[in-house]
């Protein structure tokens, strides 16, 4: 995504007054930064007996600096185009199922199906309803707050997606093998957040050296996950008798 990164040292020395300017400078002109490393790791998900993990790539990891560390850029200057991401509707499904963004970004929802969809979210702080729109059209929604927000279609209950708004830009989505890598992480102490839709979020303290950090292992427990059907945008159940999950 964006390449706006800065060192922990510089942030730690900055004051509240200079923060905005520094950040703006960073955004406008990425400065060569020393001591940036790569952090990588692997997520393990404990499943119920006999079940195998098939959705490692729905895992989102992000780092939050400890010690009042400066936040990465979340605002934009006037006239500046807001960075955007996209989740398409294709074959009565959201593609991708999980999209990670940073606060303030908007997500496009292009309809690639031959029929209409009605994308909505009832999540607190991120509620929206894009209304029914047909093939070829696209609408978007902006996410201001950090958090993980479920996205649905009002006429296709099985369509679900998550927009995960990470508070920093040091984030990554795991691959199908559960491995992830975050590049350009300044040395320092961080809290590693590991999120997955079927598990309780895990937080780990890590210390990133100038050379980075390798093989951070995290373990999620999905055994306690219990599926519960969501309601439509009117707050009603789609079909309580249905055997289909939505």
């Amino acid at each position: 995504m964006s390449g706006h990164r800065s060192t922990r040292r510089r942030w730690s020395q900055s004051t509240a007054a200079t923060l905005a300017a520094v950040l703006l400078a960073v955004v406008l002109a990425p400065a060569p930064v020393a001591a940036q490393g790569s952090v990588n790791g692997r997520v393990a998900i404990t499943e119920r007996p006999g079940e195998a993990t098939t959705d490692f790539n729905a895992t989102v990891v992000y780092l939050v600096p400890v010690d009042s560390a400066p936040r990465p850029p979340v605002a934009k200057a006037k006239g500046e185009k807001v960075p955007s991401a996209s989740i398409a509707m294709n074959g009565r499904a959201f593609v991708p199922h999980v999209r990670v963004i940073t606060p303030g970004m908007k997500v496009e929802f292009p309809n690639q199906d031959p029929f209409s969809h009605n994308i909505f979210s009832t999540a607190t702080g991120a509620a929206f309803d894009l209304g029914l729109y047909g093939a070829g059209k696209s609408k978007d929604a902006t996410f201001k707050r950090a958090g993980a927000f479920p996205i649905y279609c009002n006429i296709h209950p099985r369509m679900t997606a998550f927009v995960v708004v990470a508070p920093t830009s040091w984030y990554a989505q795991a691959g199908n093998d559960g491995r992830w890598t975050i590049e350009g992480v300044p040395a320092g102490r961080y809290t590693l957040h590991v999120w997955h839709e079927r598990a309780t979020e895990v937080k780990q303290s890590i210390t990133v050296l100038a050379t980075g950090l390798s093989d951070v292992s995290s373990s999620l427990d999905a055994r306690g996950f219990k599926f519960s059907p969501h309601k439509n945008k009117f707050g009603k159940e789609y079909d309580k008798n249905s055997a289909v999950r939505y």
């Binding site: 006429i155 296709h156 008798n241």
Partner: peptide, 18 residues
């Protein structure tokens, strides 16, 4: 009676209601 949407909903119903 938007044709594609009606068909989509018929299919959706078929899937949802098994």
């Amino acid at each position: 009676r938007v044709g594609t949407d009606v068909l989509d909903q018929a299919q959706e119903a078929a899937t949802s209601l098994n």
